[in-house]
Design a protein around this nucleic acid. Sequence first.
DNA 1: ACTTTTGTCAACCAAATGGTTAAACTGTTT
DNA 2: AAACAGTTTAACCATTTGGTTGACAAAAGT
Lengths: 204, 204
Amino acid sequence: MTKVKEQNTETVILEAAKEVFQHKGMAGARMQEIADKAGINKAMLHYYYRSKDKLFSAVFASAINLMAPKIMKIINTEDHLFAKIENFTYKYIDFISKHSYMPLFIINELNRNPNLLKDAFANKIENNIEQKLVAQIDDLIAKGEIRSINPEQLLLHIISLSVFPVIGKPLLKNILQKDDKSYKQLIKERQTCVAEFVINAIKL
Amino acid sequence: MTKVKEQNTETVILEAAKEVFQHKGMAGARMQEIADKAGINKAMLHYYYRSKDKLFSAVFASAINLMAPKIMKIINTEDHLFAKIENFTYKYIDFISKHSYMPLFIINELNRNPNLLKDAFANKIENNIEQKLVAQIDDLIAKGEIRSINPEQLLLHIISLSVFPVIGKPLLKNILQKDDKSYKQLIKERQTCVAEFVINAIKL
DNA sequence: ACTTTTGTCAACCAAATGGTTAAACTGTTT
DNA sequence: AAACAGTTTAACCATTTGGTTGACAAAAGT
C-alpha cells in the first residue's frame, strides 16, 4: 500500500488562501483563518510561502492568470464582431458568475497597489489583441455595417455590462428589490440580452 | 472677539474617517490614521463615536445618504425617458467621478455585511420610484417608441455603463493601456456617449 | 542501520491595534 | 475666584496578529 498523500500541502494552502483573500481582501484576511481552512498549522503557511505578502501575491497572480486568458481567447478569433460579442458576453458572464469574488478582489487590490499587475504576469500579448479588435471595428464602420463609435468606448461598454451586475450584486439586488434566486435569474438572462442590447446599439 | 471654533471636532473626525474608510475599507482602516488625518488625539475618536464600528456606521450612512438621493431625484421627474437617460448618465458619471471611491466602498462593505443598508437609511421611497420608471418604459414599448425590453435589465445596463468604468479604473486603464490623463478623458466622453449608446439600443 | 533532508506542530514573541483611564485644560456659571 | 461641565491629552491595557523557534516525526539517501 503506497500511502497516497491526499493532496500537495502547498496547493491545499493556496486554495484555502484564495478563498480567504478573495472574500476578505489582503487587509481583512487572517493567516490563522487560512491555516484553519487548509486544516494545517499556521507555521506551515510560512514554511511554504514565506510571508503573508508572498502568499497574497501567489493568490493574486493565480487569479489574474485564470482571468486574463478567458478574455483573450474569446476576442482573439476570426469571427464576425457580432459573434464575438455574443460569445464574450455569454461565456464571460458565465465565468465570473462562478467566480463572483474574483473581479472585485482584483479591482480592490489593484486600487491598493497599482503595481500588482506588473508583478503578477509577464505582460502578455494583450495590447495587440486590443489593436486587432479596434481594427476590426474600424473596418465595420468603414463598410457601413455599424454606427461610428469609439472602439475603446465599445469595449468599456461590453465589459461594464458583463461584469458590474455580478460584482455589484449586493447593492443592485437591493435597488431592484430582488431576492437571491430572482437576481440570479436576472444575471442568467444577461448572458444573452447584453449581446442583443449591444448589437442593437451599433448595428445599422 | 468671539473665538471661532475653526470646525466642529465631531465633523472633522467624520471627514477624516470618510477618507480613510472609503480608501482602505473597514478592515484596512486604522483608528490612528484617522486621528492623525483629523489632527487630534486617538482618544477623541472614542469620545465622539464610541467604537470603530460606530464610526464606520456613521461614515457608511453618510455615503449612502449622499449617493441615493442623487439617483432618485434624476429618475423621479416627468421628463421623457430619453431625457432621463441623458440626465442620469451625465450627472451620475460626473458625481461618482468626483467621489470615485464611494461606490466601490459601498459594494465592498455591503458584501461583507448585507445588513448595512437596513441600518444605514430608513428605507425610503425607492421601490416605487423604480415602479414608476418601469411603468414609463412599458408605456413607451406599448406605444412602439422603443424596442421591447425588460425594464430591470435596462436599469442594470444604464447603471453598469455609468459606474463600472469609474470603479474599475485601475484594471481598465491597464487593459486599454491608457495613462491617467487619457483615461480621465475617456470617462468624460462617457458622460454623453453612454446615453447615446443606450438610446440607440432601444429606439425604434 | 545511520544519517540527512523534508515536513509538521505546539509554544512562543514582538509589534500593532482597538479601546480605556485619569489627569489636565478651557470656557462658563455662580 | 471657586465650582463646574465639556473637551483634550498622554500613558496605559488587553487582545490580536504576522512571524519565529526548537523539538520531533517521516521520508529519502547512503
